[in-house]
């Protein structure tokens, strides 16, 4: 970990200013209450506090290597007790030695120097405590920052993973049944077989290749869905009818990639798969206050007993919407008579 004072020039300046302030207070006290002249007051102050200032920079390492989170608390106290004693002894002895040399012939000051030992040591202890406290604060602040950063990173990682999992996977049923239809068409209608192979390839290319893109335009999403519906129409013929009504102003609106696909798959699965009569899938998209409003509905066979599985698809979409828009209220489903309807609002992302 970088030394907090030496880390930036700015911090070193602050550090020096802090010591200058303490030194000035000290010198003023000597001048005012003890009657020493300015030269003596400031020299005394300068010698002692510049010494402490230099030693205090080194104290960072005692703090760094006796981490209160890792080391035993008794060890920490023992370390600091030792370091404090050593600091004070070196500090006082060096300081008083230097001052004795400077003011060798001023007996009044030399007497004062001897008398001042107790309170100088007291000040030293407090300075020591203050400094290590500041150092510990710096460390815990840095740890906190790091933790926040890590958490944010982790969150975005989790979000990405979740999103990629929630995007619809290619349904193997759909794939193999489509291949079977193609196999049949090669005999009965080779031209149509070729057309279907091309559509299926385009569909697969989009499903496999474009997954890393988070947002695409509605018209791109619709291209993909049209391929899907056309392929299913070859399988189901007249049983599947679809009607799309998309307002022109919606076409360039950005929507989450593959957000509509599962809804259409659901409509086919629960409508067409389960009914031997015609099923109409209607899609309406129009602008609204927040962004765009999409409605997908299909009729279904009332006699067909409901199958489960529907909930997972819808739940996945709700989860995706929550992750992307941080909102829970964007998707509503409604089942009435023989119509199943999903209403979804996609807000503008700012």
């Amino acid at each position: 970990m970088v030394h907090p004072v030496l880390q930036k020039k700015k911090y070193l300046v602050y550090y020096l200013l802090a010591w200058a302030f303490i030194g000035t207070v000290h010198a003023t006290v000597l001048n005012h209450f003890y009657g020493f002249n300015h030269l003596i007051s400031f020299t005394d102050s300068f010698v002692f506090y510049s010494l402490f200032g230099i030693i205090a920079i080194g104290l960072w390492y005692t703090v760094k290597y006796s981490d209160i989170n890792k080391a035993k608390i008794t060890d920490v106290i023992f370390n600091h007790g030792g370091a404090a004693a050593l600091t004070l002894v070196i500090w006082y002895l060096t300081g008083s030695f230097l001052l004795r040399q400077i003011f060798a012939d001023n007996t009044e000051y030399l007497n004062f120097l001897n008398v001042s030992i107790p309170w100088r040591l007291t000040i030293g202890v407090f300075l020591y405590l203050l400094i290590i406290l500041i150092y510990y604060l710096v460390i815990s602040y840095r740890n906190l920052q790091e933790k926040i950063l890590n958490e944010a990173e982790l969150k975005s990682l989790v979000k990405e993973t979740e999103l990629s999992l929630l995007k619809s996977q290619i349904n193997p049923h759909f794939l193999f049944n489509s291949l079977n239809s193609i196999s049949s068409l090669t005999i009965t209608n080779p031209a149509k077989a070729q057309e279907m192979i091309i559509k299926l390839s385009e569909f697969l290319r989009h499903s496999i290749g474009h997954k890393e893109r988070q947002m695409i335009s509605l018209s791109e999403e619709m291209d993909h869905i049209l391929l899907y519906l056309d392929i299913e129409k070859v399988r189901f013929g007249d049983r599947l009818v679809y009607r799309l009504d998309i307002s022109e102003s919606c076409k360039n609106f950005e929507v989450p990639n593959m957000i509509l696909q599962p809804l259409f798959e659901n409509a086919v699965k629960h409508g067409v798969y389960e009914s031997s009569d015609e099923v109409t899938i209607s899609f309406v998209c129009e602008p609204c206050m927040d962004g765009i409003k999409l409605k997908i509905s299909n009729n279904f066979d009332l006699e067909a007993a409901p199958r489960m599985g529907n909930r997972m698809g819808i739940k996945n979409i709700i989860n995706r919407l929550r992750l992307i828009y941080q909102r829970e209220d964007l998707l509503k489903t409604n089942k009435s008579n023989s119509i199943f309807e999903v209403e979804m609002i996609l807000p503008k992302l700012t």
Binding site: N177, N180, S181, S183, S184, L185, I187, T188, V234, R235, F236, G237, S276
Partner: peptide, 27 residues
């Protein structure tokens, strides 16, 4: 239930003259 799948079976059945198809059913 799928027309193309039924067509394929019918086509494959043409190779088996000993099998008569009575009908096809979609559900």
């Amino acid at each position: 239930d799928e027309q193309p799948a039924r067509d394929l079976i019918k086509h494959y059945l043409t190779a088996h003259s000993n099998i008569t198809l009575l009908g096809e059913f979609a559900d």
